[in-house]
């Protein structure tokens, strides 16, 4: 069994797709070809609503709520008034606490960043700092969920799952949404869950260390053998499906 003989049509489409990426074919044609190429795979690339600026997202979540007034939101008045009573909640006052960290200007833009992030300061001219973020929740589990899903009451899909659902992905050999985290965050795996979206959009957790994803090593003695077994299974499945077009009853008899 030779893989190359099996994929001639696929290769043709692959060439066609690569070719038309640089020629005059419109995006719809390209995407139809892409879907064809992927046999209607649920993660095949999809058309965007408008031209995208970004193809990929790297979502970095610094857990626990880092202090804005000690990092990216410099408040000289807070330093000056250290120890003084300042207005707090509902007509109460609290003693101001200046930041123990020094701030300095970085880059041509002169962004003020504290000594906690000198290296990010080095790329200050590439950063957009939103200083006016606000959330409805002040408890870790809920606020972490809200930052990922927009909701802390009703279980909702994560932003990564929504993007996978909306855009599909470019490499079907890897999941569309991967989450690298060594330790379980607040709210656990709910933060990368797909909930009501098809589960193919759920984030796949990668655990930094010796076995980042479980069971990647095949129990078969060699990769070659495992690959031959996989091709055999695939061909058997294909034959079964081809002989029974539209026959749901014989699709997976053991599970019905």
């Amino acid at each position: 069994m030779n893989e190359e003989h099996r994929v001639n049509r696929r290769q043709f489409l692959n060439y066609a797709l690569t070719g038309c990426a640089t020629t005059m074919l419109g995006p719809v044609t390209k995407l139809c070809l892409a879907a064809e190429l992927h046999n209607g795979h649920p993660l095949a690339p999809k058309l965007t609503h408008h031209p995208a600026k970004a193809k990929n997202l790297i979502f970095v979540f610094l857990t626990g709520g880092f202090s804005h007034v000690d990092t990216f939101d410099y408040k000289p008045k807070l330093q000056q008034d250290h120890g003084k009573e300042i207005p707090a909640w509902e007509n109460t006052t609290q003693p101001a606490m200046g930041s123990p960290f020094n701030f300095q200007e970085f880059g041509e833009s002169g962004l003020m960043i504290s000594e906690l992030f000198p290296h990010l300061g080095g790329v200050a001219d590439d950063l957009c700092v939103i200083k006016s973020m606000h959330t409805d929740l002040v408890e870790h589990f809920q606020a972490t969920l809200a930052m990922h899903t927009g909701s802390a009451t009703v279980p909702m899909p994560s932003i990564g799952a929504w993007l996978s659902y909306g855009l599909g992905t470019e490499n079907l050999e890897l999941p569309s949404y991967m989450v690298l985290c060594e330790r379980i965050p607040y709210s656990g795996s709910q933060v990368w869950d797909s909930h009501f979206l098809p589960p193919v959009h759920q984030g796949v957790r990668v655990i930094p260390g010796d076995e980042p994803v479980g069971n990647l090593k095949s129990p078969a003695r060699s990769l070659k053998l495992a690959e031959l077994e996989r091709i055999m299974l695939h061909d058997a499945n294909e034959l079964h499906a081809r002989r029974r077009p539209g026959d749901f009853g014989t699709a997976c008899p053991n599970e019905r």
Binding site: S67, H134, A143
Partner: peptide, 30 residues
């Protein structure tokens, strides 16, 4: 590639011991 660097909330400008308490009213993300 879009990079979002964020957290769940900020921290109060007043003290909670030598640290700060949770603060959802204002915080920073990148």
């Amino acid at each position: 590639t879009l990079i979002a660097i964020c957290t769940e909330f900020g921290r109060t400008p007043f003290s909670d011991g030598a640290g700060r308490n949770h603060h959802g009213t204002a915080f920073s993300c990148l």
